[in-house]
């Protein structure tokens, strides 16, 4: 397995173009670099290419042009060391699994084998870290949205070493759960890079050090530079404006 030395970025994308069909380019000329131990928010309107970008980062899609490096190597090889948290709402509410079953999936490695004791220990540890170990035997479907999300984070943590990627964690959760999610992310960002995808600009709080705007083009902003003009460019209409004051990245920015 390739592991990046500590100074190398966890995600590095250069000159990436992608389209599902040639007439409709989804992403063009994307250059992104996400450093170790940083927190990054990927924002953009629905259909703007955020999920596509995440799939490209994870190697689930191949770019038409350009290169993606994940933890210093090709995503197909290194993605098993990345923690990925999908949207919890996409799961079949009738699927018969326990929270522990779901968490253990993070320990799968493609081999034909049963779980061993180390797998169970890792799963319980991750659940305990998310304060969910008392629910290990609960049915996943019967947990609340916030609890399901924490189980999915626990699953990601059983394999995440340097990078955690979350897809739309703020979709359909209430303000209180959102608050505790922020607390969890704050904790995790001390030991790994956190990348969060959201269409919800309100979530782009000062916690994030940089914001990646995705709408065909991709731009990295230091959080402090987000302006109402940029949001309008991206979302096309008046949006509620938020101001961020935090560390700046060195990347410049122009909107076309």
């Amino acid at each position: 397995m390739t592991t990046a030395p500590d100074t190398e970025p966890v995600i590095e994308i250069s000159g990436l173009d992608f389209s599902y069909n040639p007439q409709q380019p989804i992403l063009s000329k994307v250059n992104i670099s996400v450093a170790q131990f940083t927190s990054t928010c990927i924002v953009g309107p629905n259909g703007g290419g955020k999920s596509t970008l995440v799939k490209l980062i994870l190697g689930l899609l191949r770019p038409d042009r350009g290169r993606v490096l994940l933890l210093g190597g090709p995503p197909e090889v290194t993605r098993s060391q990345v923690g990925y948290v999908p949207q919890y709402a996409k799961f079949d509410p009738l699927f018969p699994v326990s929270a522990l079953d779901v968490t253990l999936m993070g320990r799968l490695d493609g081999r034909a084998r049963r779980y061993c004791r180390a797998d169970y220990q890792a799963a319980h540890q991750a659940l305990a870290e998310m304060d969910m170990d008392s629910h290990a035997q609960s049915s996943f479907a019967e947990l609340s949205g916030g609890q399901q999300q924490r189980v999915l984070i626990a699953r990601a943590l059983t394999s995440a070493v340097k990078l955690l990627i979350m897809d739309e964690p703020t979709a359909s959760i209430d303000a209180q759960v959102e608050g505790s999610l922020m607390e969890i992310l704050r904790c995790l960002s001390r030991r790994m890079a956190v990348v969060l995808v959201t269409h919800d600009l309100g979530f782009t709080s000062k916690f994030f050090q940089s914001v990646i705007c995705v709408h065909g083009q991709v731009h990295i902003h230091p959080t402090s530079e987000i302006t109402g003009k940029m949001i309008q460019d991206m979302y096309g209409s008046d949006s509620q404006m938020i101001r961020h004051d935090h560390r700046c990245s060195t990347e410049g920015h122009t909107h076309v």
């Binding site: 990925y84 799961f91 699994v97 079953d101 999936m105 799968l108 490695d109 493609g110 049963r114």
Partner: peptide, 24 residues
């Protein structure tokens, strides 16, 4: 199924994630 029980379950539950974990 005894040997591949967990793999089959992961693929049925969340195919994308199973793929990320290296399952074909």
């Amino acid at each position: 199924v005894w040997l591949l029980y967990h793999n089959f379950m992961a693929v049925c539950f969340d195919e994308e994630y199973a793929r990320l974990r290296g399952l074909n």
